[in-house]
């Protein structure tokens, strides 16, 4: 009975194409509430952002349509150009370091040892912990006079550093935090890849007498390459957008030495309340991330082709 009443609206809906099965449309009611939410909080903001970026839009003054002039203004904004540079340096380092360290950690965690599950839980704590709380403690550790990091350096005979308080060392110092925080994610993804590798190649390698490095280089590494690529992609997307750590530790300083695009975007939109210009930055920023992802995909494709060409 209830099946009948339920199927009738679906039948009415699909009346235009009676030959089609009744099934697909009837799942729509499950999706509609989420669709409304996604439209409201993801699609609408995007459409509105694009519209705002075409306007001179400041809080407290009337808005005027200015076409593409916000975008033209970007090309001659030295702070924005500088921020792109900072973002790229920060991103490249924050992708490569966790990739290398995370792969090493995954190889270790792939072995069997007592307490592995518990230790893995400890190992992933940095990426689950509240970033602002983490940033606060790192700030104390970076302190040039009282910080524990300079004390640790002094133990191995390295002179004290200014860490986040000097323009030359601020980005590497922030990358240190980012690496500490996100190496676990790379580890988890690569660990998933290691678990999927069949054991046969290892057995034959053992018979051939390959050493640990050869096994890693010629068997493990090629097999986990797809996972490394995915980890690198996710890392790139997150590192480009990194906000909490940078904002809480340096706010882009000293001066503007660690001001990335995201931090600059915050200043423009919510310190100067120049919302039109901020929207233009947001749009360009998003396109930049898509571009970086496309470059990575292209590089991966190229690599695959050369592998096939040289390998076969």
């Amino acid at each position: 009975m209830s099946a009948l009443t339920q199927s009738s609206p679906a039948a009415a809906q699909s009346g235009a194409a009676p030959e089609k099965e009744l099934r697909p449309p009837s799942y729509w009611p499950f999706v509609v509430p989420a669709l409304v939410v996604v439209l409201a909080i993801i699609i609408f903001p995007w459409v509105f952002t694009i519209w705002m970026s075409l306007n001179e839009w400041k809080v407290g003054s009337p808005t005027t349509f200015v076409g593409l002039s916000n975008y033209l203004r970007l090309t001659g904004d030295p702070r924005f150009i500088e921020a792109i540079g900072h973002t790229l340096v920060y991103t490249v380092l924050s992708v490569l370091l966790p990739l290398v360290l995370g792969t090493l950690a995954a190889v270790v965690f792939h072995q069997k040892f007592a307490g592995r599950g518990f230790l893995r839980g400890i190992f992933i704590m940095p990426m689950m912990a509240t970033p602002v709380a983490i940033a606060l403690v790192w700030t104390m550790m970076f302190h040039p006079q009282l910080g524990v990091l300079n004390y640790l350096l002094s133990l191995v005979g390295i002179s004290p550093q200014l860490w986040v308080f000097h323009p030359a060392t601020v980005i590497p110092s922030l990358v240190l935090v980012e690496t500490w925080q996100w190496t676990p994610l790379v580890m988890l993804i690569v660990l998933g890849g290691l678990a999927a590798i069949p054991t046969e190649p290892y057995e034959s390698a053992q018979i051939d007498g390959a050493n640990f490095w050869q096994v890693f280089r010629f068997i493990t590494l090629p097999l986990i390459m797809p996972f490394l690529f995915i980890a690198g992609m996710i890392r790139m997307i997150d590192a480009v957008k990194s906000f909490d750590i940078i904002f809480a530790i340096t706010q882009g300083g000293p001066g503007s030495a660690s001001e990335t695009i995201n931090i600059y975007l915050y200043s423009v939109a919510f310190t100067y309340y120049d919302l039109g210009y901020g929207s233009a930055i947001a749009v360009v920023f998003f396109l930049l991330i898509v571009l970086l992802a496309a470059v990575m995909l292209y590089a991966r494709q190229r690599m695959l082709w050369t592998e096939i060409a040289s390998g076969a």
């Binding site: 996604v38 993801i42 903001p45 952002t49």
Partner: peptide, 26 residues
């Protein structure tokens, strides 16, 4: 159940978009 995998693109866009971009219009 609908195997509507293309709809996941929206999720992907949400994943890529910097949080601040939502903040300005909202």
């Amino acid at each position: 159940r609908m195997a509507a995998h293309k709809s996941a693109i929206v999720i992907l866009i949400a994943r890529i978009t910097p949080g601040l971009s939502y903040l300005i219009p909202l």
